[in-house]
């Protein structure tokens, strides 16, 4: 019985965790569209900053995207996002960008 409740508990907390991830993913999608979008365009096809559509990023390795988001690009208006985003956030953003937001 105790084991069962433990299993249920673990299961419940896992599903809560999964929900939370989804929430965060949604938040990050929103951030990409509207806040990244203020320079890169809401459809990410580029504005003051370059296009972030999946095709445009095809030849850019994850590491480059990661460091660009985290540290920004000195000499350009691309700011470092490390104070607002965790490493996990950045990895999720890269995944979303690779898949495309539209």
């Amino acid at each position: 019985m105790q084991t069962l409740s433990l299993v249920i508990l673990v299961f419940l907390s896992l599903s809560v965790f999964a929900d939370r991830l989804t929430d965060r993913q949604q938040e990050l999608r929103y951030l990409i569209k509207h806040d990244c979008g203020s320079c890169h365009g809401m459809t990410l096809k580029g504005g003051l900053g370059p296009s972030l559509q999946s095709l445009a990023l095809k030849n850019k390795p994850d590491e480059l995207l990661f460091i660009t988001i985290k540290e920004g690009r000195p000499g350009t208006p691309m700011p470092p996002w490390k104070s607002l985003l965790t490493n996990d956030d950045i990895n999720i953003i890269i995944k979303i960008l690779r898949k495309g937001i539209n």
Binding site: D35, S38, C39, L48, G72, P77, P79, P80, W81, S83, L84
Partner: peptide, 13 residues
């Protein structure tokens, strides 16, 4: 203006 000051990251122009 701004000389010698560390600029903050600019999240919107």
């Amino acid at each position: 203006y701004g000389k010698g000051k560390q600029k903050l990251p600019v999240y919107k122009m």
